[in-house]
Structures are given as structure tokens and as C-alpha cells.
């Protein structure tokens, strides 16, 4: 396969100035494994950006760099900068806990705490001492409504989170993330363990969420990326191959690699 230069395929006609998340020269190693190579990416505020690519290309590592969850992995090393609202989060004095409050994360497999539905959503606000009593109840209700789950659980808030179906649990995880009033929401293949109906509900939710939050979603489902996202980034073997307006990327990919991926020749 011809080695494609990635220099011209990034930041097409995008803004340079009002990036919510500005990734510059990001390199990540796990031990000797060079997982992310010189990633440069600007993500716009209040959009849905999809990150796609074949398995093992570094998608998950990329979004975990944004909320510094990679720090928790033994043997990981990060070089480069990630600016959020103009501030480099890899600076030495960064308050990681406040950072992670501002950035919500939803995981591949729904992982509600073994607690009640109420306690799951209330967890975040409690640890950040954001509210108590009635105020807390209000936050829980608001978050569950935003996650389109309220009507289904309002009468059984104190039941265990495990009494919910898979799709409901994932929406609960979204509500949990929303409860701490984040600005960015990262989603790592949130629908991959859900059935089509549940998936559709969450995809509908994403549109609404992007009105208030900046959403970055990792997916290996091309159709999903095409459906829900405003912008799409294509990662291959740790390198950012292409990034741009979703419609443009899918209809008129500038890189041969991208085209091959979209048409399903590999991945």
C-alpha cells in the first residue's frame, strides 16, 4: 500500500481559533508500544465528532488522552499537548479531578455502580460537593430527563441499577456523567453492546446532547458515524489519516486509505 502523506488531510476548512479541544503533536506510548503518533486535531464546540478506524488504531487511547484517563495505566507515557478552552491539560499543576468533572465519559459496556439508580446519578455531584438534599434530587431528575430515562425510572429511583435493561443502564451512565455538569462528553463505542432499538434511542439522544455539550464518540460502525456525527476523524495505526466534515469525508474522502476503509476493504 502506498504510504499516504497525512499532512494535507487534516483541519480542512475548519476553524483554527475556536477549538474546544485542541490536540497538538500528541504521542502516547504503552511501554514500548507507540500507540498514538503525532496527532493534531481540533474539535469544535457543541458538535458531535466521530472517531473511527480499524481495531487497535488508537481511537480509545485518543479519547482517554482528553480526560487523562491514560494516566491510570501503568507504563503509559504521553508527550504533546491537549488544550481545552485554551488551557493545556498536561501542564504540571492541572487539577485532574476538576478536569474529569468537566469531561464525562461513557464506556463500551454499561458500568453503573452496584447501587440504586438515584445513587448512581447522585454519585458525581456528591463527590464534588455540588449539592445536597432537595437540590441534589433536582439534579438527579434533570440529568435523568436529559438522558431520556426519567419517565422509565421515576417511580423506582431507589431500585438497583441492575434492574434496568442494557440500553437503560447505558442511558443511566449518560445521566450519571451529565449530573456533574460537564462541557465535553466522551463516548467509547457506547452502543456496541446494545440491541438496535436501544442503539437508536441513544443515537437520537446524541443529537440533542450536542446542543449543549461537545460530544466525541468512538465508533467502528461506519453507518453510525455517518448518521450521528458532524465531523469525522479517521485513525489508522496510531496516525490521523483524515479529518473533516462528515458528509465530505464519506462522500469525498481525500485519502485513499479512508476510501478503502469506507468501502470496507479492511477494518
Amino acid at each position: 500500500m502506498k504510504q499516504i502523506s497525512t499532512k494535507n488531510c487534516t483541519h480542512d476548512d475548519l476553524m483554527v481559533n475556536d477549538a474546544k479541544i485542541d490536540v497538538r503533536k500528541l504521542n502516547v506510548w504503552f511501554g514500548d508500544n507507540h500507540v498514538l503518533k503525532d496527532i493534531n486535531l481540533k474539535i469544535r464546540e457543541k458538535t458531535v465528532t466521530a472517531i473511527m478506524g480499524p481495531s487497535g488504531c488508537g481511537k480509545t487511547t485518543l479519547i482517554r488522552s482528553i480526560n487523562r484517563m491514560n494516566d491510570l495505566i501503568n507504563g503509559s507515557r504521553t508527550l504533546g499537548e491537549v488544550y481545552i478552552d485554551g488551557y493545556n491539560i498536561y501542564e504540571r499543576n492541572t487539577n485532574v479531578y476538576e478536569l474529569r468533572r468537566k469531561i464525562g465519559m461513557v464506556f463500551q459496556k454499561p458500568n453503573p455502580f452496584p447501587k440504586s439508580i438515584y445513587e448512581n446519578v447522585a454519585f458525581g455531584p456528591k463527590i464534588h460537593k455540588m449539592a445536597r438534599g432537595k437540590e441534589l434530587d433536582d439534579i438527579v431528575e434533570k440529568s435523568l430527563k436529559e438522558a431520556a430515562l426519567w419517565d422509565e425510572v421515576k417511580d423506582r429511583l431507589h431500585n438497583s441499577a441492575f434492574s434496568l435493561s442494557g440500553g437503560q443502564q447505558q442511558r443511566l451512565c449518560i445521566a450519571r456523567a451529565l449530573a456533574v455538569k460537564p462541557e465535553i462528553i466522551l463516548m467509547d463505542e457506547p452502543c456496541s453492546s446494545l440491541d438496535p432499538t436501544a442503539t437508536a434511542r441513544i443515537e437520537a439522544l446524541l443529537r440533542r446532547l450536542s446542543e449543549k455539550y461537545t460530544v466525541v464518540i468512538v465508533t467502528h460502525n461506519l453507518q453510525q458515524a455517518a448518521r450521528v456525527s458532524d465531523f469525522t476523524a479517521f485513525l489508522y495505526m496510531g496516525k490521523l489519516v483524515e479529518y473533516g466534515d462528515t458528509k465530505r469525508v464519506f462522500e469525498n474522502p481525500q485519502s485513499e486509505l479512508t476510501e478503502k476503509y469506507i468501502t470496507g476493504e479492511f477494518g
Binding site: N67, M69, F107, F123
Partner: peptide
């Protein structure tokens, strides 16, 4: 399970929390 730990940390909890 690790998933619980990750969920808590991703919400901004400290190690002790």
C-alpha cells in the same frame, strides 16, 4: 471489577473517594 473504578475515576473522583 475494574469497570466500577474506571467509572468513578472518570467522574472526577480521587483515588481515596
Amino acid at each position: 471489577p475494574n469497570s466500577y473504578k474506571e467509572a468513578a475515576l472518570a467522574l472526577g473522583a480521587t483515588r481515596w473517594q
